[in-house]
Amino acid sequence: MALAEPRKSAVQPTWVERIPAIWWALLLVLLTMPAWANDFILFQVMGWTFVLGMIALSLMFLAGYGGMVSLIQMSVAAMAGYMVAIFGASGVGDISMGLPWWLYIPIAIVIAAIFGTVVGALAVRTEGIYTIMITLAIASAFFYFTRQNYTIFNGYSGFNLVVPPQLFGVDWRQPMPFYYLTLGCAGLCYGAVVYVSRAPFGLALQGVRDNPRRMAALGFNVTAHRVASYTFASVIASIGGILLVWQNAQIAPGTAGIPAVIDILVIAVIGGITRPIGPFIGALIYVLLRTFSPDVLLAFGLSGERFKLLVGLGFLALVFFSPDGVLGLWERWRARRARRRDPLTGGEE
């Protein structure tokens, strides 16, 4: 029997063929965007989307694959941003050391990763809702600390004039270079998360998420896997944080204030925390709402300040009706369409 059955195809499809067409279309749109979009869209909308998407991606990695909803990711990102401002150059000459870029970027990422790992080591002692509360509390402690500390974090005013280095003769803060920079970093982080999720470590992590006791019985070190996932997520968040500080050209305690911390959670949840593309979708929706909702609200005769209300109501409706975000809505819609055509009878249900 087994011999008679023909093999599906003699040649395995190459990886190029295995990627669905829609991804190629998306890649084409993203790569050619500078040709047809204006600078505002490139820098403010898309650049910000990629940056927020990366930070939310780190949350998605922890929440989706590790089952740990950590609200510390924005603080880790801000930590990396602060380190760039402190070790690199900024408008605050007394504190900034002005090291070269190839030194301060690794330092920033390493310090932020250590910070994230330490917080993670504290947070993994708890589970579920406690993790949220503890990370929220530590995130606010970070906010208050940066606001009060003047010797390292320059207190309330933070750092200004933090700009990316002039590399290869390109000003990376111009809209087009910055767009490609954020696109490249976002693509790398996305690829890294997808790769890790299929690597042995990621699979073990998903096992830990689903049944920690069974994984422990199989000989996996549950705590070590969780802490390591915090480290990995912190690296992604810190890359996002560095880009964020370059985009704004400044960093202040408010960058990682409680509203910003909540925003990252909102972005990840709106997009959906089941797949790595979710945070980027969520970030795009958030940025579009944030950028254009004042105009829409004004058009309806409401005050433009009510943008938070709009975001909050949208978020509320989404989590109420679709806990797995926009991606969940999309998947359910596709499932319903697929169900309509019954493959056996060919008729409609």
């Binding site: 909803v69 579920g128 809702i129 949220i132 909540i262 959670l265 909102v266 949840v269 009510r306 938070k308 209300l309 975001v311 909050g312 109501l313 978020f315 509320l316 989590v319 109420f320 806990p323």
Partner: peptide, 23 residues
């Protein structure tokens, strides 16, 4: 029993209520 969903919904609620009170 859905702790995570409750957290999200109450965070959303607090954002909405905070903005209504600000209004």
């Amino acid at each position: 029993g859905e702790e995570l969903r409750q957290t999200m919904v109450t965070i959303g609620l607090s954002v909405v209520i905070a903005d209504l009170m600000l209004w």
